[in-house]
Amino acid sequence: MRPRLLILLLAGLPLGAAAARPGLQFPEFPAPVLVQDQFGTTKKIGLLYFLRGLHESGVRGYEDLDLVDAEYAVLHSDSLPSLAAWLEVACRSVGANVRLARQGPYDGMTYARLLEVGASLAALRERELALAIPIGVIICQRRRAWGSLPGDGERDAYILIATERGLLIYDPPTRQLCALSDYPNNSTVLKIQF
């Protein structure tokens, strides 16, 4: 009996070790507030909205716009403080400090993806919409300084969000936010992807 018991115990060891590993505590994403149209339904936007937004913001080269979905909702800018908070807390849950992220090799694309995924999951949890969440990424060449970010010619990426205020750029480490039309490097955009 004893050898059998020992074998059983040894067989169960890896399972026990995995169970002992702590799980990941992840903040629940607050449901994003979506803009309604005049009929009280969720406002839908598509390719034309983005093309017009880019044109009005002074961005040229529309071939660099990639839209993966056909229809998107519009985020209310009142949601932005909770979106930004979620991103910082989600990163903190894995021991990463967003505010210090630019001290190492920074990749803004990872934060854009994470925020879009979090917002999409929250919207999905609320109700099925058949609309994509309009959080994307914008890759630019930093020719001109923007706040504390230098104009050093480096490639950089930010979060781009379609809101009722228009297309807004957000940089998580610096918390800088501005309309795409006011972004100093809107003429050196390399790629926009939603």
Binding site: P27, S82, A85, L87, E88, W146, R175, Q176, C178
Partner: peptide, 11 residues
Amino acid sequence: IEYLVPDLAAL
């Protein structure tokens, strides 16, 4: 420059 203030208390 506009700075977004994350609503950490609500979260």
